[in-house]
């Protein structure tokens, strides 16, 4: 009996803590994003962060994109050829990448590459008093460090997804047409025919939302990490896990709006 009660208490406590954290994160995000309209304008620092976060993730995004396109074409061909519809290989690959795999896989890779380093960097800046040092030099760390990284994430990820899509479609074409022998004209013609702006908008919306989400979660986790070695390590792991799961959940929600 008491064990059962204790268990219920534990569930309640965990839920309350979760809700409190969610509220805290939301307030943090709103307070940070509000600084976008405050002076001093962080112009140069957005660009610097986009370089660090975006360009830094480029290689892993290109590799992931290429192999995703290739494997989709390979799998898709062997499935479609059984029912004699391999002419639809182009749109099958393109739709999967543009609507679903591009934003999701790019976001997951982005979390591992850029998100983790954001949380760790902010955590370590707190451990080594660099945040206080900025504060003492009359530079608002929330604007300089948090805001620039969140915005850089929200702007970089859509661009990375676009690159992922292009690389993926091209890789799919190479496998489908050059290796498996689907007619090139049919492949491209069917693709253009079946893809419309709605698909591209869905992918774009997803990637902006994912970018914003990853930016907010990773900066928040870094900011709230216990300022110890262990605390930063834990926060980094949690940030990556939370981002990955939230990307998948948010993906389902956005998809249901765009069907």
């Amino acid at each position: 009996m008491t064990a059962g009660l204790q268990w219920i208490g534990e569930v309640g406590r965990t839920t309350m803590q979760g809700v409190a954290k969610l509220g805290d994160a939301t307030l943090f995000a709103l307070a940070t994003l509000r600084l976008l309209f405050a002076r001093p304008w962080q112009g140069k620092h957005f660009v610097l962060q986009m370089y660090a976060i975006g360009v830094g993730s480029l290689i892993i995004i290109i590799i992931t994109g290429a192999f995703t396109g290739m494997v989709l074409a390979l799998q898709g061909y062997h499935m479609l050829v059984k029912v004699g519809t391999e002419s639809l290989l182009g749109p099958a690959v393109a739709l999967s990448i543009i609507r679903e795999l591009g934003p999701v896989l790019a976001a997951l890779m982005f979390v591992g590459r850029a998100g983790s380093s954001i949380t760790a960097e902010i955590g370590i800046m707190r451990v080594t008093e660099q945040m206080d040092a900025l504060e003492m030099m009359a530079v608002n760390p929330q604007a300089r460090v948090m805001l620039t990284r969140i915005i850089a994430c929200a702007l970089s990820l859509p661009l990375l997804v676009a690159i992922f899509d292009v690389v993926g479609l091209f890789a799919g074409y190479l496998i489908g047409v050059d290796m498996l022998g689907v007619n090139g004209g049919v492949y491209i013609g069917e693709t253009i025919d079946k893809i419309d702006m709605r698909d591209i908008n869905a992918g774009l919306t997803k990637s902006i939302c994912f970018g914003l989400l990853v930016g907010i979660i990773c900066t928040y986790m870094g900011q709230r990490a216990k300022p110890t070695t262990e605390g930063v390590a834990k926060a980094t792991t949690q940030a990556v896990m939370l981002c990955s799961v939230m990307v998948l959940i948010l993906d389902y929600i956005i998809t249901s709006f765009f069907l």
């Binding site: 800046m125 080594t128 008093e129 660099q130 206080d132 040092a133 003492m136």
Partner: peptide
Amino acid sequence: SRKRLYELRMRVGMVFQYSALLN
């Protein structure tokens, strides 16, 4: 206010225990 605090901070400096140089 935060704005005034930042103005006052330009008149002070601080040396932190672990230096806190920007890495």
